[in-house]
Computed example of a mutant assay.
Amino acid sequence: MKKIFLAILCVIFLVGCGKEDETAKAPAKIEGYKTGEEIKLASVFGKELTLLRTEGGFVIKGDESKVIMFDIFGTFCPPCQKEAPELMDFQLKNDKDFIIIALTHFENVTNQHVIENFAQKYNAYYFISNNTPVNDKLSAQILEDIKYPHLESVPIKMVLKNGIYQPLTDIASGKFGVHYYLGGIHLDKLTQDFERIKNVN
């Protein structure tokens, strides 16, 4: 019964769980963050960090040189669940230079639900924000920043260095030059892109 409900939820929200409608448009414009504005985030595990809005992107206040990967995801989403252990492994191997900031999206659940039904179950102990209003605005801003032209779907990831969105390798086509990973991550592509991004000034 729970699986049927989740499938219906994906259809209702047109999330697609990793698939996209090529004809759909990006979310409506929002009143965006202003340069210099601070966005405080708390993880479901109690850690906190502050994002600082740059001219068209974000950095972590006090750790501006760290590469950020925003992961807009849903705890209900099979590709999100499948990739979580690999993302955790990648985070651990690159902890000095890299941080995953995961934003729950298309759901309204408790932190305990995220911990028990996603983090513990799929070994996802990276930074997970579960604040619906903050996550929704931040997700909309990120997609607006990269001029994402399609309907929102999860999982989708963007990578920033020094407040600048980095070009990435498209998961579907394997071509380089998009500003997002859509669908379940391919660790080889992420590793290759990250090595290149680390060497960008």
Rank of each mutant, 00 (worst) to 15 (best):
D97H: 14
P85H: 06
I115C: 07
D71G: 10
Q91F: 10
L92S: 15
Y126S: 00
N135W: 08
L138I: 00
P133Q: 05
S129K: 04
D71Q: 07
Y122K: 04
H105F: 14
D136A: 14
N117D: 11
E116Y: 09
Y122D: 03
D97A: 14
I101P: 02
F106I: 13
D95F: 11
N123K: 07
D95R: 10
Y126A: 06
D95I: 14
E86R: 09
K121H: 03
Q112C: 13
F106V: 10
N123D: 12
N94E: 08
K82R: 13
P78D: 11
Q81K: 10
N117Y: 10
D71W: 07
A84K: 08
F106P: 07
N94D: 06
I68F: 03
K96S: 15
C77D: 12
Q81R: 14
S129A: 13
P133A: 08
F106Y: 10
E116P: 05
P133C: 08
I100C: 06
F106G: 09
M69P: 06
F98K: 04
D97S: 14
F73R: 12
N111M: 13
V114T: 02
V67C: 07
V67K: 02
M69H: 01
S139D: 01
K137L: 08
T75M: 04
A102E: 10
K137G: 05
A140F: 03
I99A: 15
F76W: 15
A119N: 12
K121V: 06
L138W: 01
F118M: 00
A124S: 08
V134W: 00
N94T: 08
V134C: 03
E86T: 11
S129W: 00
D97G: 12
F98A: 06
T75D: 02
V114A: 05
N135A: 04
N108W: 05
T104P: 02
F70N: 04
K137R: 11
F73T: 13
V109E: 03
N108G: 10
A119C: 15
M69Q: 13
D71K: 13
A84M: 07
K82A: 15
K96G: 12
F90K: 05
I128S: 00
Q112K: 15
Q120W: 04
K96A: 15
N130F: 09
I128A: 00
N94W: 09
I72Q: 04
